[in-house]
Design a binder for these strands. Structure first.
Lengths: 276, 276
DNA sequence: CAAAATACGTAACATACGATACAGCGCTCC
DNA sequence: GGAGCGCTGTATCGTATGTTACGTATTTTG
């Protein structure tokens, strides 16, 4: 049973054309606010044209845009008024310390992040990472590069041809020569988005590379070029943004890819197990 | 200080004429949804005419109706993103998918990890990291080194002399010469514990270096030499162990150190802010 | 109680919004 | 490699929306 529009979208996002999928991703990224704005603003936020937005809402089963907005508003009204919304964790365990809020916010971020992320989406991404015929490249920004390294460290064990792109921009820019449409590029990029990464992503996209983007809820501009976008919540009561939600998504994906390869009976996995 | 539009309204509702007051009451009644609808719908809901609605928003200080709506949307956006007010849909939809168990286990790991970790412990470690008189070194194992990098990337910004030890063992072994009792060494080590790290930790300990250890619940042998031990839960339904709990602890510490340095009015922090 | 000022609604207007037709483009499949 | 299909953006149109002017009603004040 599909109760919310968000679920409806996650359900059908797989069958949507590229433009409408970008609309869907943008809407999910900060749901449901983008859908309450005008078509023009929505389209600008998603980087597509107005008709694409209208086709998007039509595909969801709405007769017209106002009807779509009304549905979103009704949903929001129910959510805001539901008593459940006020009853979460009553008991921050005292402490008075500044720790609990941090943990609570982080846990909340993870729930939120996964709420906007359907099992199917994750499975699709895992499949792309597992069944890719070419190579896998991973790269991240100033603070997120460790996440790229973490993921690369795991994937490189269960798959051949997994490369983390490190060091100077000039170094990985030259690696573009090796990339083609059979390859996958995993990019981590949260605010403040790095110009160099955007440029790199664009060029990779032009070469037909499939891009999987890990970003925050405000979506890196790289989302324009990405085949798959994962928007993680990053807000915590701290001077820094939190990458913890993205970290967990990464771990989940690592697990899913491993499982798929195991299920496929990949020779490499068997060889690995015999080595241990 | 008036932060929300709702406060602004209740502040001025006393000075409003009857019609506008009805508009105000209607809006407050199911705030802020009525304000996101059209003027015609708003006026119908309040039982007044359109111009009355417009005069109402004008009295609140808005130039026109769209500006008023934008303000409401911004406020709603902030509210939806803040962890406090947000709820999650009842009980994860229990898809047969393999995702929910992974997330649930991870969340549980974090709660458990923090349950065994008092605020005081964390504060002590943060103090050691913030007030250390010497240098800070960070290093990790095969899968945890990215966590060391992540922490180093942040600490290096707010403190001088923060070094991540990378590359071959022979390289960081030589750095031992630089280490003394005023220095702090942060080590990440989970199963299977790496011999090289244990040796390194021992030698550092002999030189009087203060060791902060991030490990799993079974405790790396390094715990023998460590001044502070953080034991994170790592078990998840996956072929791999999860470092997510340790990651969150690391983020928490980063935040705590930052706060302490700010509170101490560290010159570097002020300089940083002036740079931004 | 009278007169003035303020508040409110009706009606007309202009803008900008959503909707649609159409053409160009890339992609897939034979 | 070519033909067909489907997706996407541009341009145009009708309309619903916010806005304003003005006349009437209501309250306030001397």
């Amino acid at each position: 049973m599909i109760s919310s529009i968000a679920e409806l979208i996650s359900d059908r996002i797989g069958t949507m054309p590229a433009g409408e999928r970008r609309a869907a991703q943008t809407l999910i990224a900060n749901y449901p606010l983008t859908g309450l704005k005008t078509v023009a603003e929505f389209s600008a936020a998603a980087g597509v044209s107005s008709p694409t937005i209208l086709r998007f809402v039509a595909r969801l089963g709405f007769q017209n845009y106002p009807e779509f907005q009304s549905a979103l508003q009704d949903e929001l009204a129910a959510q805001l008024q539901s008593p459940a919304s006020r009853t979460l964790n009553p008991a921050s365990p005292v402490g008075g310390g500044a720790v609990s809020p941090m943990l609570e916010a982080t846990l909340q971020n993870m729930r939120e992040t996964f709420r906007h992320l359907s099992d199917k989406q994750l499975a699709d991404i895992a499949t792309r990472l597992a069944e890719r015929r070419g190579k896998t490249f991973l790269i991240g920004g100033r603070f997120t590069d460790p996440l790229a390294r973490y993921m690369a460290a795991h994937l490189a064990i269960i798959q051949p041809d997994v490369y983390h792109l490190a060091g100077q921009e000039s170094i990985w820019r030259d690696r573009l020569i090796d990339m083609g449409k059979r390859d996958v590029l995993v990019i981590f990029d949260i605010r403040r988005y790095q110009e160099s990464l955007v440029r790199f992503a664009e060029k990779a996209h032009q070469r037909g590379v499939q891009i999987v983007l890990f970003t925050d809820q405000w979506l890196s501009p790289i989302a324009r070029f990405a085949r798959h976008v994962i928007a993680g919540r990053t807000a915590v009561p701290s001077a820094w943004d939190s990458s913890a939600a993205l970290f967990v998504v990464a771990e989940t994906l690592i697990g899913a890819v491993t499982r798929q390869l195991e299920a496929a009976g990949a020779k490499r996995i068997r060889d690995l197990e015999s080595l241990r």
